[in-house]
């Protein structure tokens, strides 16, 4: 543990690939037992940051300390205490489900008997015990993901890194993964995850940073971020695509001036940020604007991101 009380602490962290700067100088600190998230669109620098934290990618600049050890010089020692769930499942297709766990444990130098016992427990934990002897290939995406999560836990890590843990999974599979991750958190395991899903960040993270273009643009708990960068409610007005084209979109927005704290014009809809959604809807109809459909909802991290970057997260 570092003197500053952080499990992970980074200052001025930079990652460059040739001329391309993936991470452009970030500072962060993750405390023991918290679930910390990197939120941002593809290419924001989340995965590069994760790989640096996983000690499989040396930082180009800056200082990175993990579990109180310097990432640049203590890679193997740090990795011994980490669990890693990479963005793409890298399961060993030549081994069975169970062997994927036991052999992985051996890479950590864990004795065979211990590896066997833990592998069995972990398969129970991720609800794959009945597939122990099967090959990996025929498993569904959700099952592979759960197996990868189980694999990341064979060394009983203090810190688990999850890169896009539920991308590409169907809703049911996602909820199962979330539920397992929540249990891990309950056990006191520190979770660091990247996601470009708002709901995932809101579900899992105690605290998160929003990344864009290799930089951190905001930091805080999901609710604090929403409170700071958005309003309580959002009114979505959906229009015909042609109506929002260029100048006409701005015309409609002008008509609505003063009805909301802020108005965003998207290609297919207008977003009105307001404290009282229903009151705003009434005011909109009073001004003679007639959208195709109207939706009042609570603000989410998506709105925070839109506010911070001027772009939506998932295009």
């Amino acid at each position: 543990m570092g003197g500053d009380g952080y499990l992970i602490s980074a200052t001025g962290l930079v990652k460059r690939f040739g001329d391309f700067t993936a991470v452009a100088g970030i500072d962060l600190g993750v405390r023991r037992g918290e679930a910390f998230g990197f939120l941002g669109p593809n290419g924001a620098g989340k995965s590069s940051t994760m790989r640096m934290i996983g000690c499989v990618s040396p930082p180009s600049e800056g200082r990175l300390s993990i579990l109180g050890l310097d990432a640049a010089s203590h890679g193997p020692q740090i990795r011994a205490r980490l669990g890693v769930v990479p963005q793409q499942d890298s399961l060993d297709v030549e081994l069975t489900v169970l062997e994927n766990l036991t052999i992985y444990a051996r890479y950590f130098g864990i004795p065979r008997a211990v590896a066997q016992r833990r592998a069995a427990e972990l398969l129970d934990f991720v609800q794959l015990a009945d597939r122990a002897g099967d090959r990996v290939e025929p498993l569904s995406g959700g099952m592979k993901r759960r197996l990868t999560i189980a694999r990341s836990l064979v060394n009983e890590p203090e810190l688990v890194l999850l890169d896009e843990p539920t991308t590409g999974l169907d809703p049911q599979a996602r909820h199962l993964v979330w539920e397992r991750l929540y249990r891990l958190k309950q056990r006191g395991v520190t979770l660091v995850l990247t996601t470009h899903y708002m709901d995932e960040a809101e579900q899992l993270c105690d605290r998160l940073v929003v990344m864009d273009g290799g930089r951190i643009v905001a930091e805080g708990s999901p609710s604090a971020l929403i409170a700071r960068f958005s309003t309580r409610e959002v009114v979505e007005l959906r229009f015909d695509l042609a109506d929002l084209d260029g100048a006409r979109g701005r015309d409609i927005a002008d008509t609505l001036t003063g009805l909301a704290d802020r108005v965003e014009v998207l290609p297919d809809r207008l977003l009105l940020y307001t404290a009282d959604g229903d009151a705003t809807v009434t005011a909109v109809t009073d001004r003679g604007v007639e959208p195709m459909s109207v939706l009042v909802r609570r603000s989410s991290l998506e709105d925070v991101f839109l506010r911070l970057t001027g772009r939506t997260l998932v295009d």
Binding site: G54, V56, G75, P76, Q77, R79, A80, L82, V84, P86, Q88, S90, L91, D92, V93, E94, Y104, Y107, F108, G109, R151, N155
Partner: peptide, 14 residues
């Protein structure tokens, strides 16, 4: 193709 080594090098194996 198998990305096997990516997984191995995420462990203490050098």
């Amino acid at each position: 193709y198998m990305r096997l080594y990516d997984a191995v090098l995420a462990t203490p194996v050098t």
